[in-house]
Amino acid sequence: MSAPVLECQAVRKTYDQRVVLKGLSLTLQRGERLALTGPSGCGKTTLLNCLGGIDRPDSGQIILLEQDIVLLTADELASLRRERIGTIFQFFHLLPTLTVRENIEFPLQLLGVPPTIREERSQKLLSRVRLEHRAEAFPGALSGGEMQRAAIARALIHRPALLLADEPTGNLDSQNGANILELLREMTEETGTSLLLVTHSPEATNICHRILRLRDGEIEHGAP
């Protein structure tokens, strides 16, 4: 069996004397879809930020693809994110001044992939998420569901090993939300990407292999 994509050991993080993560540990296997649930303020986003290398824990280990990212420099972390991680957010966070196509292509641009290949791939993904007709539009003109579909395309275009999703359906109605979840499941299956999904919604947990419950910075072990 291959090494886990992600392994946390005793991750601890404090903000303003409030302990947000209290020595948390978890493991994520390749291709696995893991849901993280919990009430607000339990530290889900903080954990996600630490795992993605955007924030640093005060103590503990985070081993991503066999590298302890806590030891990496900011530049190395950025590199890591560029190459191996994709992120989707509750509020979509598309770059407003780029068209949908450009947004989707952007990670490849960061990696220096030549334009022709970029176009090819973005075109494929555009049709996969059924946004070809919106390719040249700006995010401001899109609906919530469309924006999140574009975000998914963007998050997967560079074939990351890990996809971090922070409440992807939080800002969508139930129909759109279901579509997004389905899309996520399908596409991560297709590409073999591991998914770490932070969510409130029970529907989201359905697409995952495992559910971990967070409470006050600690994991309450839940369903396998």
């Binding site: 993605g52 955007i54 900011a74 530049d75 950025a78 994110r81 992120t87 770059l95 990670p107 960061l110």
Partner: peptide, 16 residues
């Protein structure tokens, strides 16, 4: 500012 978060999430370095 929000965009900056996105950019960082996307893996852009400070220099970039």
């Amino acid at each position: 500012k929000a965009e900056l978060t996105t950019l960082r999430a996307l893996g852009m370095s400070h220099r970039q």
